[in-house]
Design a protein around this nucleic acid. Sequence first.
DNA 1: TTCCTATTTGGCAAAATAGGCAAATAGGTC
DNA 2: GACCTATTTGCCTATTTTGCCAAATAGGAA
Lengths: 93, 93
Amino acid sequence: MKDDPKYQYMSQIMKALAHPTRLFILDLLAEKEYCVCELQKQIGTDISTVSKHLAVLKNAGLISSHKVNNQVWYNLLCPCVLDFYNCVSEIKN
Amino acid sequence: MKDDPKYQYMSQIMKALAHPTRLFILDLLAEKEYCVCELQKQIGTDISTVSKHLAVLKNAGLISSHKVNNQVWYNLLCPCVLDFYNCVSEIKN
DNA sequence: TTCCTATTTGGCAAAATAGGCAAATAGGTC
DNA sequence: GACCTATTTGCCTATTTTGCCAAATAGGAA
């Protein structure tokens, strides 16, 4: 039961959400699509770090990307993730 | 913006959800409350491992516990977490 | 008190994750 | 071809997480 692949699968998605920078990225992508360099300006870390965070989110199926010339644009695939923000925000520590 | 404490806080909760065993525990607690030894039977790992997973979930505010004699019973505090399961389940890899 | 069961805690080693830098890749322009 | 910009990948180190074992703690019962 514990080894049901559904828990493996869901924990992979939760892991993708388990980083402040990635949550911030999803919040940004909720408004509009961004290219990597614009996200990098908002975030402030090395662009390779941003790229890796985006790869994690994409691998989890949360975002998608398309290329325009030499830029890669990312957009949100699963807006329901943001609804969960509200639920989680109400949990008090 | 990235350093907004809300992202720190939410990522902490997401981290608590980012493990197959802990997701399984929440699924069990959705039905009824369990004591540690009953959870251990369902999960099959060392009981100290179960106890630590429970501590992670409790620290995140997702579950609560109360003691009856020498047993500790745990129950779910945030059923909305399970609604998120449905959202996440629909994300395709 | 001693004994028994239930649970937590500490320590440790293995595995996973994060982030920076440099190099590689991709696409365009000159 | 050489050059420039945008992005990804590889490598490395530091940090965090995981899970087991043993020890400690808590609460009853004999």
